[in-house]
Computed example of a mutant assay.
Amino acid sequence: MVEQYRAQLAAELARIGAPMPEASAQFAELLAAAVTEAARDVPAVSYDVRDAASQSRKALDEVTKQIQSRRDHRSNLDEKLLGARRFLADAVGVPVSTFPFAGELISVAEQHSAWRGAAERVIAPFSSTLLVRDELIVVARRATESRTLGVRLVIEAVPHSVDEPRRPKDARSLVHRLAVSDGPLASYVRKRIATEFDYACVSHPDELDDVERGVTIGGLVKRNSRRYEKDDRHDVGDATRWVLGGDTEARLEALLERRREAKAAMEEAASRDAEADSLRQNAVTRRDVFTRVSAFTWDQVDLASAAAVTKARRDELRALTSRSGTLRDVRGPLRLHFDLEEAICALEWGPPQGCVDGEDPFADETRSRSSSPTCAVSSKATGPTSRPPVRSSASPCCSA
């Protein structure tokens, strides 16, 4: 049993890399540590680690969806806005191109590409506006009212005729740095830009004092004489947020780069999460092992003591079975008694074949003596009998 207990304890300790104690003092130290460790609480993985892994996966999924949307629709607008437009176009019964977003018709001239981020911020209120011609506005309104779109949609009715746009007040005006795509709505878009987005592009924020409306290249916007706005929730140069223009290549390239970054961040967060999981599982395993170890006792695994006990018992057995032992002393008279009963039985009834129901405890000696001259003579002197044997119950060879 000691070997079995030692094997069990050794297997448990091997799971946590702990050595097998070989002395009672070592076992006492192990047992004290086991009791302490078994009572130790194992905390869950940190919320921050879990949340970082979750958020990184969501960020990767989001940018992947945007990339797919750019490839599917060739538009820089949000997927939900594009979905709302598809619904309206289907409801009205016209092609999607009939309802352009203003931002799809406006782009920043290539020579002024450094101002792209600033222009995006200035025109943001207009770029996501859906343009609908007057003759379709009624059915478009009804379709919009008929269901929940799941997104903020701004619709602007476009008249049939539009006056010529006014000239910009400042040579540095943003109007000079924008281009409008030709088409049936181009005149309306140019007028709206000239009227509402005539912002001077200044090189220093102090120059904003000299203009009614202006913008810096860093994205600080002066909306009127008293109101300044800088929306830095995203970097001004973050091309993944740009919506102006029908060319999606710049935004697509930026999104692909963003996806590479998001994937690396996700893998790193997932690695930290997995590592935290592994550490916690190791702690739980260690605690469970110590819980089982604390149930062992030194007597169960003390090989030396077990060997000593075994030796002592073997010595006792050897003493009992030796020539001078008690068992040997008793066995001699018992053999003589058995031989006497057998001889009497043989003289009266013949040889004892088949007359003994029980087993002779001295069968080996009987067989060894059966070949002796004495046994041979006794066998010949004994003849058959004509009456059934009746034996004394005291005789071992005649017991029923």
Rank of each mutant, 00 (worst) to 15 (best):
P351L: 13
G354S: 10
E37D: 05
R166P: 08
K230P: 07
P19Y: 00
A343R: 09
V175N: 04
R260N: 12
R50T: 08
L244N: 04
V202D: 01
T374S: 09
S372Q: 05
P184G: 12
R190K: 15
R166A: 13
T36F: 04
G103W: 03
L336D: 12
E37F: 05
L136K: 02
S324G: 14
G83C: 01
V301T: 02
D210G: 06
S379R: 14
A264P: 01
G350H: 00
P361I: 07
D329N: 14
I344M: 11
A124N: 06
T285A: 10
P95K: 02
D238L: 08
R152D: 12
A319E: 14
D329W: 15
H112V: 05
S97W: 04
I106S: 03
E164Y: 04
Q68C: 15
M266R: 12
S305N: 05
R260Y: 10
R369W: 08
G93Q: 05
A319T: 04
E348R: 12
P373C: 04
P184A: 13
W349S: 08
E359V: 13
D163Q: 09
G214F: 02
R133A: 15
T216K: 05
E267L: 14
E267W: 09
I106K: 00
T64M: 03
A343N: 07
R85W: 03
P100T: 01
D48W: 04
P389Q: 12
D235P: 01
P159F: 01
L334Q: 04
Y188F: 14
T36H: 08
L9K: 08
L82Q: 09
Y5A: 10
I106R: 02
S127Y: 01
